[in-house]
Structure formats: C-alpha cells, structure tokens
C-alpha cells in the first residue's frame, strides 16, 4: 500500500472509532430529549464530571478505568435521577425558556465548580491496562481508542435492547410518545422521566470513563465533545436513538476526513456545515419524526 493510502485508512479508522463514542454521547442526550422534550445543556459538563471521576479513582486509589467504568456509570445514573428529582421536575410544565435556563445554569454551575475544586490544570491518566496500540494491515490502532469504541457500541446496544425488549423500555418509549396516555396505561411517568435522566447520564458516564483513558481532563473539556453531540442529535433526528447512533459515526468520519483532506482547523467548520445542512434540507434529521 502506498503511504498515502495507509494514512488515509488510518484516518478513516480513527474517525469510525471516535464516531462510536460520539454515538453513545448523542444517544444519552437524545434519550432525555425524546422522553421529555428537554435539552440537557449541561451534557458536556456531565461528561466532564465522569472524566474527573475516572481520573480521581485512578489517581487516588489506583483503580484502572476498566474497573471504574461501571462505578462511574452508576454514579452518573444516580446523579441523573437526583438532577431530575431536585431540578428538572419543577420545570416540566414551565415555558421552554425556563427549561433552557435550568440546564444552562447547571452547565455554568458545574463548570465553575470544577474550576474551583480541581483548578484549570490539564490532567491525564497515565498508563492503564488499556495502554498501547495494535497493528492491523499496516494500520496502527490505539488500544484505548479501540476499547472506547467497543465499549460505546456495547453500551448503545444494551440501551437499545433495553428500550425494545423490556417492559420498562416499552413504558419509556410510550412515555416519550404521549405521557398523558402512558399514565392512563398505568405507567408512572414521573418514574420514567427520572429513569430517562438516569440512563442518559449513565451513557455519558460510560463515555466519560472511556474518553478519560486517552484525553486530557479539564473543567471545559465538555465543550470539546458537546458540539459534535448536539449536531449528531440534530442530524439523527431529535429523540431518535438509532438516528443518534448513525449520526455519531457519520460525524466522527467527517471530522477526521475533513481534517485529513482539507485542513485540521476546519473540522469544526465542517461540523457546523453539517448542522446547517440538516436545518435547511431535512430539519427533522435522518430518522426524526414530523
């Protein structure tokens, strides 16, 4: 293979790998939106918290991210439920602006909290059980990246299975479609809302633990990922889990290929371009309704 081709394939593979992580992040966001029509603007900050949680468990107690991952997921699940119970519940029937304010305020609060507690320093997790890389047909793949995309695919798959194959999953989908009628079926919709927040943040928890193994961790790290997440949710169709999954992969590929074929600093521009394209050509997104 020519060196250019190798480099191209190398780039493509890394785009697909990170795309799966974008997918998981987007699925978490779209799940909450789908069930209760509320956009969690603090999504990136929840990711930041998950990354810090992974970092501190590794630094303080030497727990490898591989093992802290389920703990982080559980912590974020609980945080999601608490956020719903203490905050979101009170703005369910409030005007949209009030809802935006609440999660936006949460974003600012969490970011500031992180700055105060953990300073602006960039932190990194050193060698973990996942460190190193493997070679496949002349292409190098980082093991953390490979594991991250694998973990993301598995988590998304489990979530999808839960939604489609379990009674509670059906109840969640019914609540997403019509919460009043879902109540008439005997479904406790408040509990479903709490569950949506729990699952949404647990997804972010998994993504955060996976990303922490090969990304710097700092209070604003959420902004690095949240843009692609929002664009993926819009591209996939607000509230559509399969849509968010596909869109995450597409954006992962576009981002790295754009940087490869054009110029690295334009990759954000490209993502915005996708977003504008969605807004103008297909506002409901790939798999969205309406």
């Amino acid at each position: 293979m020519s060196p250019e081709l190798v480099l191209f394939l190398q780039t493509l593979v890394s785009g697909i790998l990170i795309g799966f992580v974008f997918s998981l992040l987007s699925v978490g966001l779209t799940l909450i939106f789908g069930v209760m029509d509320i956009v969690n603007f603090a999504h990136g900050e929840h990711l930041m918290l998950a990354m810090y949680a992974t970092f501190w468990m590794w630094t303080l107690w030497g727990i490898d991210p591989l093992f802290s991952l389920p703990v982080v997921a559980l912590l974020l699940f609980i945080l999601g439920v608490i956020t719903y119970r203490l905050l979101i519940r009170y703005v369910l029937d409030a005007p949209m602006l009030a809802q935006i304010f609440v999660t936006f305020g949460l974003m600012v609060f969490l970011r500031n909290l992180a700055q105060v507690l953990w300073s602006e320093d960039y932190r990194r997790i050193g060698d973990t059980l996942l460190s190193g890389r493997i070679e496949l047909f002349g292409i190098f793949i980082g093991r953390p990246q490979l594991f991250a995309s694998l973990g993301a695919v598995i988590t998304t798959g489990l979530l999808y299975f839960f939604l489609k194959r379990t009674r509670t999953g059906w109840a969640l989908e019914a609540t997403a479609e019509d919460k009043e009628v879902a109540g008439l079926m005997g479904i406790n919709t408040e509990r479903m809302f709490a569950l949506a927040w729990g699952l949404g943040l647990a997804s972010v928890g998994v993504a955060g633990a996976l990303l922490a193994t090969f990304n710097p961790i700092f209070p604003e790290v959420g902004t690095v990922f949240v843009l692609v997440t929002f664009v993926a949710v819009a591209l996939g169709g607000f509230g559509s889990v399969p849509g968010a999954f596909i869109a995450g992969i597409i954006i992962g590929i576009v981002q790295v290929l754009g940087g490869f074929l054009w110029e690295p600093r334009f990759k954000t521009v490209l993502i915005y371009a996708i977003y504008l394209g969605v807004v103008f050509i297909r506002p409901q997104g790939l798999l969205g309704r309406r």
Binding site: R167, W170, A171, A174, E177, V181, A182, M185, G186
Partner: peptide, 16 residues
C-alpha cells in the same frame, strides 16, 4: 401510540 405496532399498543394496555 402511533409509532408503535398494534400489538405493542395492546401490550401497553396490559402494562400492569
């Protein structure tokens, strides 16, 4: 529930 199948609608009726 327009997005769900007929059977799923019926199952939701029997949720409890």
């Amino acid at each position: 529930f327009a997005r769900q199948s007929v059977l799923r609608n019926l199952y939701l009726g029997a949720f409890l």
